[in-house]
Design a protein around this nucleic acid. Structure first.
Length: 274
DNA sequence: CGTAGACCCTGCGCGC
DNA sequence: TGCGCGCAGGGTCTAC
C-alpha cells in the first residue's frame, strides 16, 4: 500500500494529534510481523513518555518520544495506521494498539504482516541496520540528476529496478517508479549505463514532482490506503500508466503496456518512453 | 561486486 | 456457488 507519499500523508495526519500525548498502554496481538514484535522493548521505550515529534525516513514512520526513544513503524504492503477516539475492540489483523493519555488509540493493522514495529534509542537510529544503508530522500535539498548519475556508475541493469533500490533513493516503489519514468519519457528497461546526464536531471525532477503531486492529493488509494483519520487519497485518478495496461496513453493515445521486471509489474507507454 | 529470483503472508477478483 | 490461479503498494536473502 504505502510508498513515500502515503507514509508522508499519514505522518502529517497523525502529527497534530500525537505530539504532546503520552503512552499509557501497549497491547500486542499477533507479534509475528516481518520481524517479531518485542512487546517488552516497546513498553520500555514508550510507556510514560510523551511524543515530541512525528517524522519519516524513507517509508518508515518515526514517532519520537521526549527526544530519547523512537517508535518506528513500517507498513509493508498492507499495513494501516489509524487513530480512533476510543478503546473499541481490536479489528481483524490489528496487531498493535497504543493507548494514549487522551483516551485515543493508535492502531496498527496489517493483513499480510510484511510490516515492522520496533523501538530504539533515537541516537542509535542512524546506525540501526534498518536505516544504515538507505540512500537520500528524494524531496530533500540536494537530490538531483547528479545524485542519480553518480549512484549509477559501475552499475548496469534496467533503470526501473535502479529507481526502486532504496540504496539509490528512498521511498520510490512500484507505482511511483512507473509514473516517474513516464513523466521523464524514459523506457523502464533502459540500462542505467545508457542514460545521458541531461536525462538524469529530467528523471530526478520527475521523481520529485510525482511524489510531491501525490502528497498534495492525499496519496494513492488503490485498495484501502487511508491516513490516520481514515481519509482516502485521490492520486489514483492522476496515474498516467500504473495499472492502465491496455488503456490509452493520455499523451499520445497509444495503448499502455505491461511487462514484468524482477517479479514486479511495470506499466509504460511504448511511444512516449524510450 | 551487482543483479535476478524466491520467499515471507493474506485477500481479492477473475475464469471455469 | 465454489475453487484454483494470478496478482498485489515492500524488503531481504540466496544463488549466480
Amino acid at each position: 500500500m504505502p510508498e513515500l507519499p502515503e507514509v508522508e500523508v499519514l505522518r502529517r495526519s497523525l502529527a497534530p494529534h500525537l505530539v504532546g500525548r503520552a503512552f499509557r498502554r501497549v497491547e500486542v496481538g499477533n507479534p509475528s510481523l516481518r520481524e517479531p514484535v518485542r512487546p517488552a522493548t516497546l513498553r520500555r521505550h514508550l510507556l510514560g513518555r510523551r511524543v515530541a515529534e512525528v517524522g519519516r525516513r524513507a517509508k518508515y514512520l518515526l514517532i519520537g518520544l521526549d527526544g530519547e526513544s523512537t517508535l518506528a513503524l513500517h507498513l509493508g504492503m498492507s499495513g494501516r495506521v489509524l487513530l480512533t477516539p476510543g478503546a473499541s475492540a481490536a479489528g481483524p489483523h490489528e496487531h498493535l494498539r497504543f493507548f494514549l493519555d487522551d483516551g485515543r488509540v493508535l492502531r496498527f493493522r496489517d493483513p499480510r504482516r510484511f510490516g515492522l514495529a520496533f523501538a530504539l534509542p533515537t541516537r542509535r537510529l542512524p546506525r540501526d541496520r534498518h536505516f544504515a544503508g538507505l540512500g537520500p530522500e528524494p524531496l530533500a535539498d540536494g537530490f538531483d540528476g547528479a545524485t542519480l548519475r553518480s549512484a549509477a556508475r559501475r552499475r548496469h541493469g534496467p533503470v526501473k529496478s535502479f529507481l526502486m533500490d532504496a540504496g539509490v533513493v528512498v521511498g520510490v516503489g512500484n507505482i511511483y517508479a512507473c509514473e516517474a519514468l513516464f513523466r521523464a519519457g524514459i523506457h523502464p528497461r533502459r540500462s542505467v549505463a545508457r542514460i545521458a546526464p541531461q536525462r538524469w536531471e529530467t528523471l530526478a525532477a520527475s521523481v520529485r514532482e510525482v511524489l510531491a503531486d501525490a502528497i498534495r492529493q492525499g496519496g494513492t488509494t488503490l485498495n484501502d490506503f487511508a491516513d490516520g483519520e481514515g481519509r482516502r487519497g485521490y492520486f489514483q485518478v492522476s496515474l498516467a500508466v500504473y495499472g492502465r495496461d491496455g488503456e490509452t496513453c493520455t499523451r499520445c493515445g497509444r495503448a499502455i503496456r505491461r511487462l514484468v521486471q524482477s517479479g514486479r509489474s511495470t506499466f509504460y507507454c511504448p511511444r512516449c518512453q524510450r
